[in-house]
Design a binder for these strands. Structure first.
Lengths: 153, 153
DNA sequence: GCGCTTTGGTTGAGCGTTCAACTATCTTCG
DNA sequence: CGAAGATAGTTGAACGCTCAACCAAAGCGC
């Protein structure tokens, strides 16, 4: 038997469209700024951040994929580029011969350190400056709920 | 004189990371579903929606770009693909000989109509079902504020 | 009417992501 | 042990987006 579609009511429509417009505009702006100022897309910046926070600035490819919410394939291509740029090195994993370890180089760390202030400033300008403290708190709860909901299913 | 970076405090960090994770996961999920079920990415689906809502199901390229928050170049490439798929047709603009009009074909409309229920269901499942009515309202206000803030600057 | 600028739109190269194979290693279990 | 299946990661093709360069038509100033 046919299941009726639960269409969006006008309020939900409005919410959904605003959400899509805002999040795309935000990500586009940050991507553009990061590309201009640091020569890398936001996704790559995030990979460097994750590595910089890891013990010895290194992670297994699968751990890095997990930490960054990236597919294995995407990560593989990305790390290849980051390696070509001299920001990351790959090493064999001593405990699992299938494994690869991605390691942030000093040059990668320096590039990240140079890019960080501008990027953070962008996040602040485009996001936090526009919202009240209460809204920031709401956005945190909403985002955490959604993230959990999405990765849980 | 050097301006100090206004770094993110731990709460802001948490908010920002959750936001990025959630919005990427959400868009990725919808993109994957739409690609699987309708053979088009979410961005193309949105173009068809905008056209379907326009008078006579047609819009000037520049209007469509504006309505969808897309660059002219992106739209040009996108419409070329949509045209190749038979979902959109291009026509000369009678009042401005530089102009092009993008027109949703019957086939495009039918494809859209077939894709809509599944997509709406996905939006509901991934987004609205996870949030309380109050949160949906908060998200609407936040998103509208952000969208305005971003496109205004 | 005639240059200058602006606007509308396209194009091609380069890059990042996805998807579907594919290889190699590890694990499990009879 | 040895075969079957799971896991780690890579690869190449197809596709979508960005950026800069470009062309054509429209508007503007004189």
């Amino acid at each position: 038997m046919a299941v009726m579609t639960r269409w969006l009511d006008p309020d939900e429509q409005r919410t959904w469209r605003a959400y899509v417009a805002a999040s795309r505009a935000l990500m586009d702006a940050l991507d553009r700024e990061l590309q201009r100022d640091a020569g890398m897309p936001h996704a790559y910046y995030e990979l460097l951040v994750r590595l910089s926070e890891a013990p010895d600035r290194q992670l297994r490819m699968s751990e890095l994929a997990e930490a960054s919410g990236s597919s294995r394939s995407r990560l593989s291509h990305a790390v290849a580029r980051l390696e070509a740029a001299g920001w990351v090195r790959r090493e064999e994993c001593p405990t699992d011969r299938r494994g690869q370890i991605a390691l942030l180089t000093d040059e990668g760390f320096a590039t990240l350190a140079a890019a960080a202030p501008g990027h953070v400033e962008g996040v602040r300008r485009h996001l936090f400056d526009a919202l009240s403290p209460a809204q920031v708190d709401q956005l945190r709860r909403i985002s955490e709920t959604l993230a959990e909901h999405l990765t849980g299913s």
